[in-house]
């Protein structure tokens, strides 16, 4: 029953999104949301709505009880076209730095079950940049990897959007970090946190303070679905010409690029 209930929840969210006049190009679901056996359902939903889906998967136990925390990116074959998609392809990315709570969990399991091969984390040391064609480049991270400063050194100058999926209770820290990263990496930042803790965010480095928070959904134990628009072409122009950024009525649209910012795309 539990599985059906979970699946019904995603379907409800996808139904809400597909009902909108302007369907989303990318749908994001939080970390640890989708059971591994439901990836096939996720592919079907992706085909129906014709959107890329980025979703956190349940923990996966590999050989030697090495546990990985991964997310899937489902890409329908007719993405951005008006034609209906008939198949999908998937890529996976994983968490590099596990949180203390996760490591504590593995310790407790080892103490309780005393398995032959102790449970331990299996980090994924690869940083991905997704080339989304007309929508720019996207950096991705799972939860505590958002605190990995080296990741942003790599991403600086190479991405337009940073998408983070999380299962995080320290919501305020993530909000402040979203603002910091949006300024330092000079990109849009999207955080999709679990509804259990709430506070999903979409942040863009606009000059006007009221424009910067594009979306923020606070409050715990709430299910929600929402479509938001992130700037692409204007931000790209600002990234390419940091000294003469795009302006509106003589005022720069975005905040200044960080010192020493160089575009590498």
């Amino acid at each position: 029953m539990g599985e059906d209930k979970g699946l019904a929840r995603y379907k409800k969210g996808f139904c809400n999104l597909s009902g909108d006049r302007e369907k989303p190009h990318i749908v994001v679901l939080p970390e640890l949301t989708v059971s591994n056996c439901y990836i096939k359902h996720l592919k079907e939903l992706s085909k129906v709505i014709n959107s890329v889906v980025i979703a956190g998967l349940d923990f996966q136990v590999n050989a030697g009880n090495k546990v990985s925390n991964k997310a899937v990116v489902v890409i329908p074959n007719n993405w951005t076209n008006t034609q209906r998609s008939t198949r999908t392809s998937c890529i996976y990315f994983g968490k590099t730095h596990f949180s203390n709570e996760e490591l504590e969990l593995f310790k407790k399991l080892n103490t309780h079950y005393k398995p032959k091969d102790k449970y331990s984390h299996l980090p994924d040391h690869v940083n991905y940049i997704i080339d989304a064609g007309p929508f720019g480049n996207i950096g991705v991270a799972i939860c505590s990897d958002f605190f990995d400063i080296e990741r942003f050194v790599i991403y600086k100058g190479k991405i337009h959007h940073m998408i983070v999926i999380s299962n995080n209770m320290d919501t305020n820290s993530y909000y402040f970090l979203a603002e910091a990263i949006a300024r330092l990496v000079f990109c849009n930042v999207v955080i999709c946190n679990t509804g259990y803790y709430g506070d999903s965010i979409a942040f863009s480095p606009y000059r006007e303070p009221f424009k910067r928070i594009i979306y923020r959904h606070q409050g715990q134990q709430l299910f929600s679905s929402q479509v938001v628009s992130l700037p692409v072409v204007s931000l790209d122009e600002a990234q390419r010409n940091p000294t003469s950024p795009p302006s509106d009525n003589g005022k720069s649209i975005f905040k200044s690029a960080p010192p020493g910012y160089i575009r590498h795309i």
Binding site: G13, P24, N188, C192, A202, V227, L230
Partner: peptide, 9 residues
Amino acid sequence: LRIGFVQSV
């Protein structure tokens, strides 16, 4: 770029 959030519990 339109992003759809499904903030599931």
